[in-house]
Design a protein around this nucleic acid. Structure first.
Lengths: 148, 148
DNA sequence: ATAACTGTCATACTGTCCTATGACAGTCAC
DNA sequence: GTGACTGTCATAGGACAGTATGACAGTTAT
C-alpha cells in the first residue's frame, strides 16, 4: 500500500522539469484541495514515508509542507501530522479580488501571444471550470460513501 | 528625452521584487505587445541607452531581448536593432489551446484558495479583457494619428 | 519508560541563476 | 575608411535556491 493510497491523492515528481520538487508538490496539493480530492481535516501523507516513496529527501517534503502552511492551506501539529485546513483567506473580499488581477493579466497576455481570441479564452476558462466542478462532485460523493 | 519616449512604452524595474530584472522587462514588453502599446515593426529601445536609463547592466537588457527573441516576440537584426515581430505562433490551433490549460488551471486553483467563486472569477476575467481591449483601441488610434 | 512514530531546526554542500566586464562583429553616415 | 552606433559572446564573480545530513522535540501505544 502506498502512503498516498488512503486518500485519492496521486503525487509525483518530475526531476527533469525545471520546477523545484518542493514546488511541484505544493502545486499538486493546492490543486487537490481545490478539486476536493483532499477534503478539509484529512491528513496528508507523513513526511518520511512519502519521501521514501517519491525517492526524495525528507526535508524536501518538509519544505513543501512548510510552504503550504505559510500559505494557509494546511495546518501542521508537531508530533501528530499535517492536515488540510478549512479553506479561508484572511483578506477582505475586495483585496482578494485584486490579488487575482495580476495572474489574470498574465493569462490574457499569454493567450494573446498564442493568438487565442478573447472569446476562445473565455470558453476555455469555462471549460476548465466545469471540469473542476465535476471533480469536486465526484470527490464529495466518494467522501460521503466513506462516511457511511 | 528618454530612450523609451518615442514609443509609449514605460519600462521600469523594481530591485526589491524577487523577480529578476531581465524577466521583469520580458513581462512588461510582452504586455505592451499584447495591449498594442507596442505595434509590430516598431523598434525597441536600443540596449545601451536603455541600460543607462534604467541603471542596469547592458547584458541584463540583452538577456531580456534574447529571451523575447526565443519566445518569438521580437526579431533582432545585429547592427540594426530589435523590432517587434508580427504576432504569430508556430503551433496549430489545438496545440495552442492546450498550452493554455495549465495556466488556466493554476488560475482556477488560486481563485479557489482566495475563495473567489467561479462566477466572480469569470466576471473578473471579462473585466480585464475589456480593459485590454480599451488599451488596444487607444493605442491603435495613436498609431493612426502618427501615420497621418 | 520505551519504542516508534510524528514534525522541526541548524548546518553545510552544490549547482545554478543573475549580473557585470571586456573584447568582438555587423551596419550605416560621413 | 573612420567613427558611432547597433547586437553578441565568453568569462567570471557573487548570491541564492534547492537539497541533504544529523540531532532534536512532541505524541501515542505498549
Amino acid at each position: 500500500m502506498t502512503v498516498t493510497g488512503q486518500v485519492m491523492l496521486r503525487l509525483q515528481v518530475n526531476f527533469k522539469s525545471g520546477l523545484p520538487v518542493y514546488l511541484q508538490l505544493v502545486e499538486q496539493i493546492k490543486a487537490a484541495a481545490a478539486s476536493g480530492t483532499l477534503q478539509h481535516g484529512e491528513p496528508l501523507p507523513s513526511i518520511r514515508p512519502l519521501a521514501e516513496e517519491l525517492r526524495v529527501n525528507r526535508n524536501t517534503i518538509a519544505k513543501a509542507y512548510a510552504e503550504l502552511e505559510s500559505l494557509g492551506v494546511i495546518e501542521t501539529i508537531p508530533g501528530k501530522g499535517c492536515f488540510l485546513k478549512q479553506n479561508t483567506s484572511p483578506f477582505r473580499a475586495k483585496v482578494r479580488a485584486e490579488m487575482l488581477a495580476e495572474p489574470i493579466d498574465a493569462l490574457i497576455v499569454q493567450a494573446h501571444h498564442l493568438q487565442i481570441s478573447e472569446a476562445n479564452l473565455l470558453r476555455l476558462v469555462k471549460e476548465r471550470l466545469v471540469e473542476f466542478e465535476a471533480q469536486r462532485q465526484k470527490a464529495d460523493a466518494k467522501s460521503k460513501e466513506k462516511a457511511a
